[in-house]
Amino acid sequence: MKRSRSLYMMSIPAVALITVFVFIPLVSGIRISLTDWNGFSQSWSYVGFKNYLNLFTDSRIVHAIKNTFYVGLGDTMLQNIFGLAYALLLNHSFRGRSVIRAIIYLPVMVSSLIMGYIWFFIVQYDNGALNDIIMLFGHDPVDWLGSGTRAVNFIMVITSMQFVGQAMVIYLAGLQGIPKEMYEAPMIDGAGTMQTFFRITLPMLRASILTNVILKLIGGLQMYDLVVALTNGGPGFSSHTISTMINYLYFDAQNAGYSAALGVFLFIIIMVSTITVNKIIGRDDK
């Protein structure tokens, strides 16, 4: 009894922090989402679920939701495929392995905002490095970010390549946790590389896959800084994600209630996605 009481006492700081930084803002956000507050005025009115209903009839928001899912799912897929491939390659001993690992991980340490600006200077129409190369071969320059679809694809690929090192590290840790003995019997029985990979390696990496998919999915769904630096949501509103729209609606459009409704919607999407992924991939963990 005394022991359980002391355990409860020890959890108080964590509970207090979660209450202050997660629970209260969440409740406050839900409350604001039911109002027409402009974000700075001292007065507002409750409008019920009007903001939520408007979300699905506003073409700009629907487009931002589509972009968010496209970037979130695409980014998760690319990072996991390339992260696992790098990890499998770099799990073998060879000369220069540590250097290659460091090079792949290095972009993770660069801020996404900086990464966005670096890529903007590479792909911009006028004086962009990519166009300079194209022009060297006698072709006309291209406004790479001039099409919304292409801009969203750039965002997805750039973020995937930037954070692939993170996925690689998690997979490397998972690979190194697989006992070597597990490969001995199948090797004696003549199992091929692919069979070993699909029958032993992949199932043993279930925890790493789960961690990576959830982390990357949440990161992708919250995509913000790279978009701001690379396209600022443009051309027009075609490359906005939910996070950049939340910022736009709150601070530029002065529509805090609507912005909060979109924020609550994003929270629900992330929660449902995480629970779903957990159930699908993590169902045999018990």
């Binding site: 911009q124 006028d126 004086n127």
Partner: peptide, 12 residues
Amino acid sequence: TNVDYLTADKSG
């Protein structure tokens, strides 16, 4: 106008 009128920034 400039070709990249939708994507250029002020530094351009």
